[in-house]
Design a binder for these strands. Structure first.
Length: 454
RNA sequence: CGGGGAGUGGCGCAGCCUGGUAGCGCAUCUGCUUUGGGAGCAGAGGGUCGCAGGUUCGAAUCCUGUCUCCCCGACCA
């Protein structure tokens, strides 16, 4: 993408409304604009990141055997009356009425709707297990939205729902999601720590929150140093059996981890030398709730013995729009965002230092074409801005690497390849720069100019 | 919802106390000079001063009402 044709409204100054670093950087980098309290417009750069995260979450859900559906944002209140939650939910739920004065609502979550779909179409244990997910916008009328997209009222969430005949099956489904979450956050370049969550009045034995570590995270977390030695991808074969999944969950939940609300320094079982203190952001929550909805809503299946039993359910959420902010909280510096390669809006950047110079522009255009042939999505700064402004902009939007080409370097036969994370700059020949880029992005460098032409 | 604060060109702010018809920096546009870490000079465009009433010859400024936004707290992906 040529920057001259892109829509990237950068801000030099920090808008007064933004308090935390991810919010400030998202505004400055032209990713989002606030529309009203807790509601945001996603601009091209922000949307790209949102979609990258969404896609990784989707791939890991599919891999774990979940099936994607898409449910409406506006729901009828009827189902909510049936489950008893219409009155229980409180003012967090945005209630609206249509022209016929029917009670509607903008969905804060979808348990009722998915249960309704299930009960209308699934009657036999032979159709189980079933796991349906969606990636859809939700609305919760928070008392006080804050922290930009980290705590908006409107937010994009992946939520899924598992259906099993019995408790053992439900546990297997739960463990499969547990493992999928470890993979998902790992691919997003984040360190995630699962913590036992409060199951509230519903009870139930299984609920975990996934906290990702970020230096500017919202809450303090305390955890066993042993997490450092765990590999989120260990034992994650393509179709793990129940025992493997159980072992993964056991391994990750046997170590101590708690947020500051629960942590009691005096009663902490972890010796001081093993205890790590950090800050974290909750980005996922998984929950097994048995028959809480299936019973009142009559979602029953016939088992092998011919008996009708309410289906065992679990639900699993990942805050996708929140993750955009969370990734930035976890990865930034004074100059701007430092994207993990997997979610970066572009693979890298190309800077033409002298857009008015024919030779320099010729080389840049050529390099841009070559990077395209490599299959790379590159942001090409072909504008007439001054070098300083270009460098600052590139640092701000945080692409993993940038290739800078200017007349002075060309005279000496070199270009500059910069690594955003380390700040390391290498003045090397164009050929070796392209080779390094191909290497770090896992793409194949064309063997010859003819290959490029073809 | 309790406590604080703010609404003035796209962004950041001054002006308000002590009414006289709006200003600064950045950004934008034009021209020239520049060009390796947010350039210089010259010129230009852009504002119903959140909204509605009121006081006054005259309101960004004073009064009343109202809306919105931000921060702290309780609540949440």
């Amino acid at each position: 993408m040529r920057l001259s044709r892109y829509f990237l409204p950068l801000l030099k100054e920090t808008p007064a409304e933004a308090e935390i670093v991810s919010h400030r950087l998202m505004l400055r980098a032209g990713m989002v604009r606030q529309s009203s309290a807790g509601i945001y417009v996603w601009l091209p750069l922000g949307l790209k990141v949102l979609q990258k995260i969404e896609q990784i979450v989707r791939e890991e859900q599919n891999r774990a055997g979940a099936l994607e559906v898409l449910m409406p944002t506006v729901q009828s209140a009827e189902l909510w009356h049936e489950s008893g939650r219409y009155d229980a939910y409180g003012p967090e739920m945005l209630r609206i009425s249509d022209r016929h004065d029917r009670e509607m609502l903008y969905g804060p979550t979808n348990e009722e709707q998915i249960t309704d779909i299930f009960r209308r179409h699934v009657k036999s244990y032979k159709d189980l297990p079933l796991n349906l997910y969606q990636i859809q916008w939700k609305f919760r009328d928070e008392i006080r939205p804050r922290f930009g997209v980290m705590r908006g009222r409107e937010f994009l969430m992946k939520d899924n729902y598992s259906f099993d005949l019995d408790h053992d099956g439900a546990v297997r489904s739960y463990n499969a999601m547990f493992a999928a979450y470890l993979r998902t956050f790992s691919r997003l370049g984040l360190r995630a720590i699962p913590m036992k969550a409060d199951t509230g009045p519903i009870g139930g034995d299984l609920s975990h929150e996934f906290i990702i570590l970020a230096p500017t995270g919202e809450s303090a977390v305390f955890f066993d140093r042993g997490f450092d030695d765990l590999d989120p991808l260990a034992d994650q074969s393509d179709d793990p059996d129940a025992a493997t999944l159980h072992a993964i969950r056991e391994r990750w939940t046997s170590l101590y981890a708690a947020t500051d609300e629960v942590h009691d320094a005096a009663a902490c079982p972890v010796p001081a030398e093993r205890l790590v203190t950090g800050r974290g952001i909750e980005v996922g929550h998984i929950f097994n709730f048995g028959t809480k909805y299936s019973e009142p809503m009559g979602a029953t299946v016939q088992g092998p013995d011919g008996q009708m039993v309410p289906v065992q359910m679990g639900s699993y959420g990942i805050g996708i729009s929140r993750l955009v902010g969370a990734v930035i909280e976890a990865s930034h510096d004074d100059a701007g965002i430092v994207w993990p390669a997997s979610v970066a809006p572009f693979d890298g950047g190309l800077i033409n230092l002298r857009a008015g110079d024919e030779r320099c522009t010729g080389v840049c255009d050529d390099v841009y074409a070559k990077l395209g042939v490599l299959g790379l999505d590159v942001l090409y700064d072909d504008t007439a801005e001054r070098p300083g402004a270009k460098f600052a902009a590139m640092d701000l939007i945080g692409l993993p690497w940038s290739l800078t080409i200017g007349p002075r370097g060309l005279d000496q036969g070199v270009v500059e390849l910069k690594d955003r994370a380390s700040g390391e700059k290498a003045e090397i020949s164009l050929e070796s720069a392209l080779a390094r880029i191909a290497e770090r992005t896992g793409t194949q460098a064309p063997a010859s100019p003819e290959a490029l032409a073809g």
